[in-house]
Design a protein around this nucleic acid. Structure first.
Length: 1083
RNA sequence: GCUCGGAUGGUGGAACUGGUAGACACGCAGGACUUAAAAUCCUGUUCGCCCUAAAGCGAGUGCGGGUUCGAUUCCCGCUCCGAGUACCA
């Protein structure tokens, strides 16, 4: 019989299903191999021809590995929670579970048609309570964990509680919220339970916190950063806005560095790793503080430039008054103050003391900032009543300062005694630690006020000519002077009006406003004006930058626009009048202590200096934010949490799974609560409120590869997968999927994997050892050209593509399924568009040729090609091989059916090797010839090499070459054909199973037979046809024995008559001879 | 802007660590079979020149240079295309 692909394919698919041919065991003497596909969301549209590309590749690989003697785990399942089913439910009232079930059945049918070797007994569905029970369980583990920076891993929250009980927060290094409290063991023990829980929530790896989220009003839910593309939702394309909400978050930032480090050891495509690196966004730099504290004013120091404003800490509303007062006080200072100043100045007490220093809305007579001590001398200016003094003391105490008072008489009569008291007091007070964790905020007076900036170019610090704060920065109000108030307010209003989108789109316009205040350069002590501008992002770094216009283009543009100075910092900088030059080359200039140094030494010198001054330190910054984990939607995993007195608590483990309740409608409640708020009598223990948001789409997919490790039997046990199974399968050896998951699924999965490893549940630090991105298959649209008449109306005439330039036409999409090699099937077209049944066609060479364009594959463009249609026409084996034949797996390409016949012809030709001209099965047991063996062993080796480097397209070509050769040799020898069947089996499993059993082998054993052993002897040649070239140009081919030496070859070459004419009578200077490759004469 | 990837016939693509560029397939052209068509099979097919044909000659892997006996492959500069990302300090 001729090649009956429909019958053969159906029969073997049934056989595999009935015999569970691909069911895999968790224990085997064979080495393990885990081949995984990124699992699909079962959409209603079904599979198009682009979807199976990766599945075909992974199936070939899995089948190949089985032949190579591996125990292969190759499962499939469904990411079945998600938005589309819910949107459909909102529109139709149909329960998403029903839609999902229907879609899954359709998917399964389509997948089965392709002949995949999945072990379906291990299928998972994320929306199945038996599955999401464990998603909820992992959530509980995260809730019960904190990240210990000491051990650099997640640990049980009980351990944290023990620490609090023993030593409070002392010496604790943990990843946590910014607003954690500092307390002692005693203070901890004294806390109420609710206080303790509130505090612990700030450490848990999943936590509830008020945060700015991406709110999508159209979808009625919050989205994660990776689900938002250019200000619109990735699914549906609806606008997204920023909103503050109480939200569950995942502390993925704790793993930022491990997620980054881990990339080095895994075999993933570089662009993918690069995307993750960018997403994590590590930058190494420094935090630098620009003090806002007034220092002795220029006139006090007796320096010129006294008109320059001083530095401010004061409440801006009263600054003007204070400024006047302060100046006046120094001039009009009392005798007592002057006397005392002589004993306190120049650190004569061993502590730096300032005079007439503004704090809050007050001016202190003397102050030591480091020890937060204020010294007041009563009398003179302070003629207020005692009550007023007390009020003032209390206010200063609230700002974190201690106050000691002396009378004028005391000071004047015994200045040495007074200064001694002050000195003792200062010695006794603890020094403030000026580091990042001690968050000193402006106006609260917990110490010296400053603006902290993050910079990756601390070496350019001497080029800082202004500071820029994000308009949202918390200090802005405080720093704005009355004169600048209008301008700043206008600017902030203007920025607020801009949407996130405008702000991103409009990066050209330079805008900003001056606050009127100045900070102090940490090294030069120069006054640095403070501006605000929206090119500084509130959410990155500290929300403030030191602007170095000579080195940063944005700063340069800003400085140019507002007339701020641009100071060169390196002798290598050029063109500073035209643009910034961020070079790290050359030696520093205008740069104080680093003048003459180069980049590396300058950076370390400066960091050391800043640390010494307490004004800065090296710092690593990440762009990665904690992941928002709640969705205000119905069709997702319920969060296993209830609330008591406003605080979240986990439900008991025995109560898992917390099953998704039924609701009457899939919409928010009238009060704006998520759909789960509609569930009746849905209360924990009948009385406590459950969390009403559900988990995001990525929850279920962040651990699913472990569930596949559990067999049906294993799943009855009480674990997400048995420890033995996990220690056997370990990780995914080969993972195939699209690059669209780069910063979503693939990052979250790595995060959960690391977390599960920290807790000892899994064994590998990285879950996916080798990953391949299959390219996208784009649609290829076909067009017909309708002629437009003079009035611009469409006529009933169509013109073929090649002639369309002679007419005015409009292009119409035409169903690609009625076009073959760009030739339109006119009869089918008339059926497809009945309104054109009587249309006239202007043909070229008797054919109507369609136009072509590459677009996304979509129904509206009539360019969707379903695998079912292809399988119906050519069979699954042809489709599998053709998809591979299209080109390298990673490359994106438009789908084009042109050429599929070549692959079909190949399979038919292969079939014919086993049959005579009348299609009788006819295989001979004769000993094959050397040429036949050579053809076979070439392909044995080629397929091995190709599969190992995932070059599937070249294998298909080689199969064709091999079958062409064997056809030419009229080979029907069993010894050749049987081995060829095995080699081809991973690519074309159905036809090979059929021939395998026709050859008399036991049915179904093909997939576990051994891959043929390559024998190089069959490829050994003793002659080679050398291309002989003169000066690199090939002239003749010369058959020579491979055993010849260089000298023998040279002799033969020089004697060759044919070559003489190319030598122009000259003697070759040199003869290059590469054995088995080439001979080249240099003349 | 930055990062990564890519550019080879009419088309998809091949050429493994520098060694005969264009394998394999599609398409196209010609032929065989056929009353005819489809299917199948055979031949040719990088371009240009020459030509009845064979043979020959020249050019050629986005552009310009370089290294080398020899470059699609390595190096430098540029152009274009695709993807990701974006005032990230």
């Amino acid at each position: 019989m001729d090649y009956q692909f429909r019958d053969i394919e159906k029969r073997w698919q049934k056989f595999w299903a009935e015999n569970q041919t691909f069911k895999v065991d968790n224990s085997s003497a064979k080495p393990k191999y885990y081949v995984l596909d990124m699992f699909p969301y079962p959409s209603g549209a079904g599979l198009h021809v682009g979807h199976p590309l990766g599945y075909i590749a992974s199936d070939i690989f899995a089948r190949y590995k089985r032949l190579k003697g591996f125990n292969v785990l190759h499962p499939m399942g469904y990411d079945s929670f998600g938005l589309p089913a819910e949107q459909y439910a909102i529109q139709t009232g149909q329960h998403p579970a029903i839609t999902t079930e229907t879609n899954i059945n359709r998917y399964r049918e389509q997948l089965d048609n392709l002949g995949f070797s999945f072990d379906w007994s291990r299928e998972v569905r994320t929306s199945d309570p038996d599955y999401y029970k464990w998603t909820q369980w992992i959530f509980m583990q995260l809730f019960n964990s904190w990240y210990n920076l000491e051990s650099d891993k997640a640990e049980s929250i009980d351990e944290l509680i023990r620490r609090f009980e023993n030593s409070g927060t002392n010496g604790l290094r943990a990843v946590c919220d910014d607003d954690v409290s500092t307390f002692s063991a005693e203070e901890w023990k004294g806390m109420h339970d609710s206080e303790k829980q509130t505090e612990l929530l700030k450490y848990r790896l999943t936590y509830l916190r008020e945060s700015t989220v991406n709110w999508c009003p159209a979808l009625g839910t919050v989205l994660a950063n990776d689900e938002v593309k250019d200000g619109y939702s990735e699914r549906g394309g609806y606008p997204v806005e920023q909103k503050k909400m109480m939200q569950w978050s995942m502390r993925i930032t704790a793993y930022a560095d491990r997620l980054l480090q881990g990339l080095d050891g895994i075999d993933w495509p570089d662009p993918l790793k690069e995307m993750q690196r960018n997403w994590i966004g590590k930058s190494v730099g420094a935090l630098v503080r620009f003090s806002l504290t007034p220092s002795p004013s220029p006139e006090e120091r007796g320096e010129p430039g006294a008109e320059k404003p001083g530095y401010m800490t004061a409440d801006p509303a009263v600054w003007d008054i204070l400024k006047d007062h302060s100046r006046q006080h120094r001039q009009d200072s009392t005798e007592a103050e002057d006397v005392l100043w002589q004993h306190l100045r120049n650190s004569s007490t061993g502590h730096k003391i300032r005079r007439q220093h503004a704090i809050g809305t007050y001016i202190a007579d003397f102050i030591c900032l480091k020890k937060a001590l204020i010294i007041e001398v009563d009398g003179g200016y302070h003629v207020e009543t005692k009550d007023q003094d007390e009020l003032r003391t209390e206010a200063l105490n609230n700002l974190g300062f201690q106050v000691i008072r002396f009378s004028n008489e005391q000071v004047v009569s015994d200045p040495i005694g007074v200064s001694k008291i002050i000195k003792e007091k200062l010695n006794a007070l603890p020094e403030r630690i000026l580091d990042g964790s001690d968050s000193l905020s402006f106006g609260e007076g917990r110490g010296e006020a400053y603006i902290e900036v993050f910079t990756t170019r601390v070496d350019t610090i001497y080029g800082t000519t202004f500071l820029v704060l994000a308009p949202e920065h918390e200090y802005v109000a405080g720093l704005t002077t009355p004169e600048q108030e209008m301008e700043i307010q206008n600017y902030i209003d203007q920025t607020k009006k801009k949407t996130e989108l405008d702000r991103m789109a409009d990066t050209k316009t330079v805008s900003g406003a001056f606050t009127g205040s100045y900070a102090k350069h940490p090294i030069t002590n120069e006054p640095i004006p403070i501006w605000i501008a929206d090119y500084v992002l509130a959410g990155y770094g500290t929300g403030a930058v030191m602007a170095v216009p000579s080195g940063d283009q944005r700063d340069w543009l800003f400085a140019t626009k507002f007339g701020l100075p641009i100071v060169a910092i390196s002798d290598a900088q050029t063109n500073l009048d035209k643009e910034a030059d961020p070079t790290k080359e050359g030696h520093y200039i205008n740069s104080g202590i680093i003048n003459g140094l180069k980049y590396k030494e300058a950076t370390s010198t400066l960091i050391a200096k800043l640390e010494e001054l307490g004004a800065g330190k090296a710092k690593v910054n990440y762009r990665l934010r904690d992941a928002i984990f709640g969705r205000q939607r119905y069709w997702g995993e319920p969060v296993p949490v209830y609330f008591k007195e406003g605080l979240p608590y986990l439900i008991d483990r025995e109560d898992l799974p917390l099953v998704l309740p039924e609701v009457d409608k899939y919409l928010p409640t009238e009060s704006g609560e998520p759909p789960l708020g509609r569930a009746e009598n849905w209360k924990y223990k009948g009385e406590l409120e459950y969390e009403l948001s559900t988990m995001p789409g990525w929850a279920g997919s962040s651990w699913y590869w472990y569930r596949y490790m559990a067999s049906q039997e294993d799943r009855k046990q009480d674990s997400f997968a048995p420890a033995e199974a996990i220690s056997y399968w370990k990780d995914v050896d080969l993972y195939i999927g699209g690059s669209e998951h780069a910063t979503g699924h693939l990052l979250y999965s790595r995060f959960w994997n690391k977390f599960l490893k920290d807790l000892g549940y899994v064994v590998e630090e990285e879950p996916f050892k080798k990953l391949i991105n299959q390219g996208m298959i784009q649609g290829r649209s076909n067009f017909v050209y309708r002629i437009i008449d003079d009035e611009g109306r469409g006529t009933n005439k169509f013109v073929s593509n090649g002639l369309k330039s002679q007419y005015t036409t409009s292009a119409l999409h035409v169903d690609v399924n009625i076009v073959m090699n760009e030739i339109l099937d006119l009869e089918k077209f008339k059926v497809f568009r009945p309104e054109f049944a009587n249309a006239e066609f202007i043909l070229e060479n008797g054919k109507y040729i369609c136009g072509v364009e590459v677009e996304k594959m979509s129904k509206s463009k009539f360019n969707v090609v379903s695998p079912d249609d292809i399988i119906e026409r050519f069979g699954a084996d042809t489709l599998r091989m053709y998809e591979m034949f299209l080109g390298p797996l990673e490359q994106s390409k438009p789908w084009n059916t042109n050429g599929i016949e070549g692959v079909f012809k190949f399979l038919r030709k292969f079939w014919k090797l086993f049959h005579d001209d009348e299609f009788n099965f006819n295989v001979s047991d004769e000993e094959p010839s050397k040429a036949e063996y050579k053809a076979l062993h070439k392909i044995i080796r080629k397929v091995e090499e190709d599969i190992e480097r995932f070059s599937f397209n070249t294998s298909v070509s080689s199969f064709m070459i091999c079958v062409n050769e064997l056809t030419d040799l009229k080979c029907n020898k069993r010894k050749i054909l049987q081995e060829l069947v095995v080699v081809l089996a991973p690519y074309a499993p159905h036809i090979t199973e059929e021939l395998w059993s026709l050859l008399g082998n036991s049915a179904g054993k093909l997939s576990v037979t051994a891959y043929p052993k390559f024998n190089p002897e069959y490829l050994v040649e003793n002659e080679f046809s050398y291309p002989v070239s003169v000066n690199g140009k090939t002239r003749i081919n010369l058959n020579l024995s491979l055993s010849l030496s260089q000298a023998e070859v040279e002799e033969l070459i020089l004697a060759n008559e044919d070559l003489k004419k190319y030598l122009d009578g000259k003697t070759p200077k040199k003869i290059i001879f590469v054995k088995g490759k080439i001979i080249n004469l240099v003349v």
